[in-house]
């Protein structure tokens, strides 16, 4: 952890001033060009025809359906991945078993796989020509080209966020308090709620925020399984593409500006949570 490095001997601080300044200038220019400028462009285009046009685009029936669907998908995928993430992190950090390394790599798989492939996997599994397709069709269960497919694809893509955030944290914290709680007669459940959760709370929240951000913004995997039925299976990112392709640039960017707002909100929350985590880490005596 960088916090433990002795600060005064840091090499960066002994670099000549010109080098520091030019590095800073390069970094700032890069941030401005690749992050700030596009963000400004989103809001610029969104409001180029005034507030009324912006509002009309956002309250449009199809846009509202897209927003509802996006929030619904996040509301299912994020809790699922939270429960999974906590369970996986617990498993990986508290027990040792054969194949643990493999499990950890598997958790990371969605980071490595292209989202398009992630979507296609589900089409091949649940599509009409897929393995489970005929059975699903006979029982009138719709997964692909309907909301469940979108939820599945989003869950897959956002799978690692919570676990990835918790595993190093729980590794660093160790299991002493839990062992103490069990020794003192706490049930597994009350130990989890009273000891573990408060310990990992902020880290968990951090993971959940990142998971949620990705769930809301996912395009590739969802695009494959959605079927693009407007008003029914178009999420916000898909709706933005539709609008842009229909020469409705202002409307497209109006909805995009909502997504950007979500992103900014995420960023603020993330900062607050990160700051709390660092403060807690600083006040706690090192184990």
């Amino acid at each position: 952890m960088s916090a433990h490095l002795p600060r005064k001997s840091s090499v960066a601080l002994r670099d000549p001033r010109w080098l520091r300044w030019s590095l800073l200038a390069i970094a700032l220019a890069f941030v401005a060009l690749f992050l700030v400028l596009p963000l400004l462009a989103v809001f610029g285009y969104a409001f180029e025809k005034g507030l009324d046009v912006w509002r009309a685009a956002v309250v449009d029936e199809e846009a509202r359906a897209a927003i509802r669907l996006t929030l619904l998908v996040a509301a299912i995928a994020v809790p699922l991945n939270t429960v999974f993430g906590v369970a996986a992190a617990w498993l990986v950090t508290r027990y040792s078993f054969r194949g643990k390394g493999l499990l950890v790599s598997l958790i990371d798989l969605p980071f490595a796989v292209s989202p398009v492939i992630a979507g296609l996997i589900y089409v091949l599994l649940f599509g009409k020509q897929g393995w489970l397709g005929p059975w699903l069709a006979d029982h009138d269960v719709k997964i692909i080209f309907a909301v469940p497919g979108i939820v599945l694809a989003t869950t897959f893509v956002t799978f690692p966020f919570v676990a990835r955030e918790l595993i190093p944290l729980m590794q660093a914290q160790g299991g002493d308090e839990e062992r103490a709680a069990i020794t003192l007669g706490a049930s597994g459940w009350s130990m989890f709620w009273r000891v573990t959760l408060p310990k990992i709370g902020w880290g968990l929240l951090y993971g959940v925020i990142l998971c949620n951000a990705r769930a809301i913004g996912e395009f590739g995997a969802v695009s494959v399984v959605s079927g693009h039925i407007r008003g029914l299976t178009n999420t916000m990112p898909l709706h933005i593409e539709v609008l842009y392709n229909e020469y409705q640039r202002t409307a497209a960017f109006a909805v995009a500006s909502l997504l950007a707002l979500f992103a900014l909100l995420t960023l603020v929350l993330k900062q607050i949570v990160g700051w709390r985590m660092r403060r807690i880490a600083a006040t706690e005596p090192d184990a």
Binding site: V123, F126, G127, K128, Q129, G130, G133, A137, K142, I144, F145, G227, H228, I229, R230, G231, L232, V242
Partner: peptide, 17 residues
């Protein structure tokens, strides 16, 4: 309800369900 996309891709989607 409407769904639009490349014709071959759309046909594929209908085949897939």
């Amino acid at each position: 309800n409407q769904s639009h996309g490349g014709s071959g891709k759309q046909s594929r989607s209908v085949i897939d369900g």
